[in-house]
């Protein structure tokens, strides 16, 4: 009987540890339970999104200030990105969003440069000014083409 109680206690501790591990993963990595709601949304439309993915970084002055939440296509023509910007970060209404690459073949991210305006973007607003992804192949072919014509 005593023996069985010991077993029960150990099994209880084991279950708790396991559930704790699941909870830790879900809260920290799965963004469950309000932890994911710590930002506001701003949209940006690009002619060429360059293959950015959900979860990609949004950076300002080289610092991560948010994530790419959704990538959608608008009227089969343009890419519309919904960005989640961390609370406490204020972006001017004339800020520019551009798609950049980390390193030469690194992953794509959204770079935001602040403007000089006095007013700030509100949740749900859209960037007025965007720069599409720089396509390296286009650049190279342009370079070859222009050097060939000289």
């Amino acid at each position: 009987m005593q023996h069985y109680r010991r077993t029960e206690i150990i099994v209880g501790a084991f279950m708790l540890t396991g559930i704790l591990a699941i909870g830790l993963l879900a809260l920290q990595l799965g963004k469950v339970g309000g932890l994911g709601e710590k930002g506001y949304e701003i949209t940006a439309t690009f002619g060429d999104a360059g293959g950015v993915r959900n979860g990609g970084d949004v950076m300002l002055a080289g610092v991560v200030i948010g994530r790419i939440k959704r990538v959608t296509l608008v009227k089969s023509l343009k890419a519309k990105l919904t960005l989640e910007i961390n609370n406490g970060i204020q972006l001017t209404t004339d800020a520019i969003a551009s798609i950049r690459t980390k390193g030469i073949i690194g992953e794509r991210y959204v770079r935001v440069s602040q403007g000089a305006d006095e007013q700030f973007l509100q949740p749900g607003d859209e960037f007025d000014d965007t720069e599409s992804a720089i396509n390296i192949e286009d650049l190279i072919s342009k370079y070859i083409f222009s050097s060939g014509s000289n």
């Binding site: 993963l25 879900a26 990595l29 799965g30 963004k31 959900n54 979860g55 970084d57």
Partner: peptide, 13 residues
């Protein structure tokens, strides 16, 4: 840590 948190989604879990 930032990369880990950013890239792992509920779907992966």
């Amino acid at each position: 840590i930032g990369e880990t948190i950013a890239k792992v989604t509920m779907h992966d879990l």
